[in-house]
């Protein structure tokens, strides 16, 4: 059986969640297969850490398990599950920020050593993709969360503006203007490098 047939593309997400609500565990299995990688990449671009991202995705599926009966057909399933994953990722970011504050404030003056990498040093002659990826990821990380989430959903996950609006529960106009501002901000941060990656 190929992976594609395992995903059963002829069955909609909404039909799968309905089956799962009726205790069909196979449906839950297929949902996980369908969304594991895309949620993982979403979380990874949000957090920049594979282990934390996997944890977020697993927690997302556990919440799906726990709250399967809370899902109503009025919403698209994909936006529902992205909302869960996004909220978990944002919570993780906030926790991380708090940890960072505590960690730095706990350090004595002598302990503070900062090593600043010259990330742009080699880009002229060797614009390898991994370095460019790191630079882009760092630029994404520096964006405020509200810009970060729209840029990931739109330009990396390639979701529609309508779906992004549903996930973030904001009006379509706000999504568009926020995506535009996020791109301009990212552009400003990346002005020194020569993209695109190949």
């Amino acid at each position: 059986m190929t992976k594609n047939s395992k995903l059963q593309p002829d069955i909609s997400d909404e039909e799968l969640i309905k089956r799962f609500q009726d205790d069909d565990l196979q449906a839950y299995d297929i949902i996980i297969l369908r969304y594991k990688d895309q949620l993982l990449n979403f979380a990874y671009r949000f957090l920049g850490n594979v282990e934390e991202s996997e944890d977020i995705v697993q927690e997302t599926f556990l919440r799906l398990w726990r709250n399967r009966h809370a899902y109503r057909q009025i919403a698209k399933f994909s936006t529902w599950i992205y909302t869960i994953a996004g909220n978990l990722a944002k919570t993780e970011l906030r926790k991380r920020k708090r940890r960072k504050v505590i960690s730095i404030s706990d350090m004595g003056f002598e302990d503070k050593e900062y090593e600043i990498e010259d990330e742009l040093a080699n880009t002229d002659q060797d614009a390898n993709s991994s370095l460019t990826e790191k630079i882009i990821q760092d630029a994404i990380d520096e964006l405020p969360p509200r810009f970060k989430e729209v840029i990931i959903l739109r330009d990396i996950q390639e979701l529609s503006y309508e779906d992004i609006g549903s996930i973030l529960q904001i009006p379509l106009g706000t999504v568009k203007s926020r995506v535009n501002r996020a791109r301009l901000k990212l552009q400003s941060k990346l002005k020194d490098i020569d993209t695109p990656m190949r």
């Binding site: 594991k36 990826e133 695109p196 990656m197």
Partner: peptide
Amino acid sequence: SIKRSLASLPKIGAS
């Protein structure tokens, strides 16, 4: 250019 770059970022797989 940046939009193209973001779309072509490598996809990671689960461990």
